[in-house]
Amino acid sequence: MTGAARDAVTSESDARLVERVLSGETHAYAALVSRYAAQCTRYADRVLRDRTDAEDAVQETFISAYDALAHYSEQARFGAWLFTILINQCRRNAQQRNRRERLAVSDHAALLDAPDDRTVVQLERDEQMEHVRDALARLEPLLREAFLLRHVEGFDYEEMRIMTGAGVSALKMRVKRACEALRVHLEVINE
């Protein structure tokens, strides 16, 4: 569902739906959620590498987006604006998960080995896909994020700049490094 801001269910534009929600037709928000649900879920799943975490992040994103809807201005495309919230939500969820898995801190504290109770739901049994997911998982978080936004979700660098707060040249460098790291892992390491 890239590109056009219209879909089969309703022919209304994102901006029009937002306006309807803000003027009291809260039920119109369901159309916006439906429109972007799959794309948000895909991004969150790729970035968080866990379906449950991804679904949590997406749900919270849409609720936060509703709360912040009054701040949405039509200068940004709604999808890009929504993704700004999603990116931050995924970062927070990833941090939360990292903390749950992290061992206790400081020289004075006993180290713990917290059991990993995360459930990883394998959606695709395709071996190649698992290989790709594994390669993606090895990227530094910011590189993974930049790669997904650019080459999977198809945002341009200006949109990415607004969404992430990073400069365009920094983003280009991240994408380049991500591509190189992926290539190495996909081609070289697995020979």
């Binding site: 206790a104 801190v105 400081s106 004075h108 180290l111 713990l112 917290a114 059991p115």
Partner: peptide, 21 residues
């Protein structure tokens, strides 16, 4: 129960660390 135990253990470790710092 084992989640409670783990959380309490993590909290205690973190408190000891905070206490020393």
């Amino acid at each position: 129960p084992d989640r409670i135990a783990r959380v309490v253990h993590e909290s205690y470790s973190a408190m000891r660390a905070a206490q020393s710092i």
